[in-house]
Design a protein around this nucleic acid. Sequence first.
DNA 1: ATAGTAATTATGCAAGTGCATAATCTCGGC
DNA 2: GCCGAGATTATGCACTTGCATAATTACTAT
Lengths: 205, 205
Amino acid sequence: MAASFRRAPDFNRRADLIEAALDCIAELGIQGTTVRAVAAHAGVSNGLIRHHFASKDNLMVEAYRRTIEIITGPPLAIVETEGSAHEKLRRFILASISGPVADPRVLSLWATFISQVPINPAFAEVHRDKYLAYRRACDVLIGEVLAAEGRNQGASERQRLSIALNAVIDGLWLEGCLSAEEIDERLQAEIGIKAIERLLDIKLG
Amino acid sequence: MAASFRRAPDFNRRADLIEAALDCIAELGIQGTTVRAVAAHAGVSNGLIRHHFASKDNLMVEAYRRTIEIITGPPLAIVETEGSAHEKLRRFILASISGPVADPRVLSLWATFISQVPINPAFAEVHRDKYLAYRRACDVLIGEVLAAEGRNQGASERQRLSIALNAVIDGLWLEGCLSAEEIDERLQAEIGIKAIERLLDIKLG
DNA sequence: ATAGTAATTATGCAAGTGCATAATCTCGGC
DNA sequence: GCCGAGATTATGCACTTGCATAATTACTAT
């Protein structure tokens, strides 16, 4: 029996397998995401996964990395953008709670991996790094906005604002994903902006 | 070989097995939570689980029910309490983001089950019911507070406030659990109250 | 062309999985 | 005391799982 297959550059194949893993997790859950299921979904043989990843666990960690990238990528990209501090914060918020990030599938993936964080050091490390990066970007944005307002609050007060801001973003993202069918995305975004305007006592264009 | 064991009333045994299942999920993850692991953790034989639950899946759904009870129990209990609308809302918020609810273990359990909701109808049903109950309690509380303030806002505006309030609660709970070691619980609670005071433009004692 | 290299498949195994079944034991009612 | 009911254990089976191994194939450099 002649095995017929097409070769793919290493990088693409790896990315494809990670994407297939995410599909499996979203559709079948972590339990149903077996090496065989991922391989079948990617249209390759089982053994190929072990050729590209040291272990199934390794593939899962990479899938977690990709998931965080999907979630924090859009907002973090805003930071590099040109614009006033206020405008950037506004777009940062919108990018965090709407668009491709506000997808039930994404929440499901996130939840799957978060549940692994406390019991698997490899996941914990990824979580710590990426979570901090997002938090830091958020803090910087707040600092810039407050500076532009001429408000030089103490570090303590600034931290409070940062925590509250993050809570609104996280909470709206969560709610939006959990009831994506019922809630209008624009309304959701508007609520987010208004809420944060009140919290920080600012106006975001 | 004589098997020696102590009998337990059906209800207690069931509750114990559910608790053992939660322990396993928190310590080993959903993957490590096998029938054998739960039985070992509860100090009983494997077969006993099948005697008390129709299937492992059934046990998992019951464990999900228990988890939601752990999370929404304390705040929902506040609603039945005596006190002014403002005072009740304040305690409701505190019960939602501090105390036994603000536990990384609880978040981990919640995340595990939430990831099952989209792929398992049994979980989806439990989710829908319990989630709605919490949301409704929250809405009623807001309505009472606004009424006490003499503010008769339209249903649309009230819904916005409700969504924002929920977001702050969910977000603070999430953040608090994710970084429970770093954040002081009292500070967290204070931030929550202050944030919601600003959002609703009220004072909560 | 051709040979070497790495990607890919095919196959099998040892361990673990949920669950069915039958035997055994504990306890309450008489 | 003892007996029936059902809670509990012991055991095994069919199936799945991750992974190792060896054979096979496609691409690249020369």
